[in-house]
């Protein structure tokens, strides 16, 4: 039985619920989870209920890494920390944007904790506003496509690189669509001493506008088109990548999502898709995916 109980209020087909379940599958009972404000936090803990079968704390949106540092320090000070893993499970907004400073501090201090970013590429809990993780040309409620806009004008922030630059001994990307790989990486991260990081790609049916049954399929397409490369970094060096046997063109990933619909309907969309294809091409080259 999962340590994340059913009865939670995640949307049918929710990516965050899957990510939470996989993380707990990987870590087991002996852990403490810290969650910043966001979908996963809200839908799992409507007082007096909680879906969590492990000790869990939510404080604020931007301070999860600091709270987790404090938990770790307390466990050390109280002589309790031997095997108990300290885990943060936070959204992309909490991680790449508002909580970045606290994360930087925690990684610099070198606490023994694992930070999992569940990246659904926008602020879902507040209604799909853009975040620093929203990819180029995705339409969100604050970067909508319109008569003179193709949606989000910025590129996705490279968070794993930022963490690696802090000297983290283990940084990995994962996807909810590759569960065994994700679980293996989370295990490795928690078993590595020091502050470690796993960035989990998590397609959100509600925010990305596809049917809930396709959550896993869309995540797989992100990997197969090289829009989401799966790799591991140890002490700043890329030490493992998931190679692609037959890479698919990015259109296959984009066309199944409502947030990219304008690229296929508006004039000039084809040109913009080429820019997205260029991102995938860069990933292939940079990480040696082929």
């Amino acid at each position: 039985m999962s340590l994340l109980a059913p009865g939670h209020r995640g949307c049918a087909g929710c990516c965050d619920a899957l990510a939470g379940k996989f993380v707990l599958d990987a870590v087991g009972k002996d852990c403490i989870v810290v969650s910043p404000t966001g979908c996963l936090e809200v839908f799992t803990t409507p007082y007096p209920e909680s879906a969590w079968g492990v000790p869990w704390i939510h404080s604020l949106f931007e301070n999860a890494a600091a709270v987790a540092s404090g938990v770790e320090a307390a466990y050390k000070a109280l002589g309790k920390k031997n095997k108990t893993k300290i885990i943060v499970i936070g959204g992309d907004g909490a991680t790449l944007d508002i909580g970045l400073q606290a994360i930087s501090g925690a990684f610099e201090r070198g606490h023994d904790l694992t930070y999992i970013c569940v990246d659904n590429e926008a602020y879902m809990n507040t209604g799909v506003q853009r975040s620093g993780a929203t990819p180029l040309f995705a339409s969100t409620t604050t970067s909508p496509a319109g008569k003179v806009s193709f949606g989000n004008p910025q590129h996705k922030k490279n968070m794993p690189a930022i963490i690696a630059a802090h000297g983290s001994p283990y940084v990995a990307t994962a996807s909810i669509s590759y569960a065994p790989d994700l679980i293996k990486k989370v295990k490795k991260a928690t078993e590595t001493k020091g502050p470690t990081y796993v960035h989990v790609h998590a397609p959100c049916c509600t925010g990305w506008k596809f049917e809930g049954s396709k959550t896993i399929e869309v995540g797989r397409l992100a990997v197969e088109t090289a829009m989401w490369p799966l790799y591991e970094m140890e002490n700043g060096e890329v030490t493992g990548v998931r190679k692609l046997k037959k890479r698919k063109p990015v259109e296959e990933y984009l066309k199944v999502q409502g947030r990219y619909k304008h690229l296929f309907t508006a004039e000039g969309g084809t040109e913009e898709i080429k820019k997205i294809q260029a991102i995938a091409d860069w990933n292939v080259k940079h990480f040696g995916l082929e």
Binding site: V34, I57, E62, N63, A66, V67, G70, V71, A74
Partner: peptide
């Protein structure tokens, strides 16, 4: 902000 946040975690622990 992190000082007080860390203590929130530590106190809860």
């Amino acid at each position: 902000f992190s000082a007080i946040s860390a203590l929130i975690g530590a106190s809860a622990a």
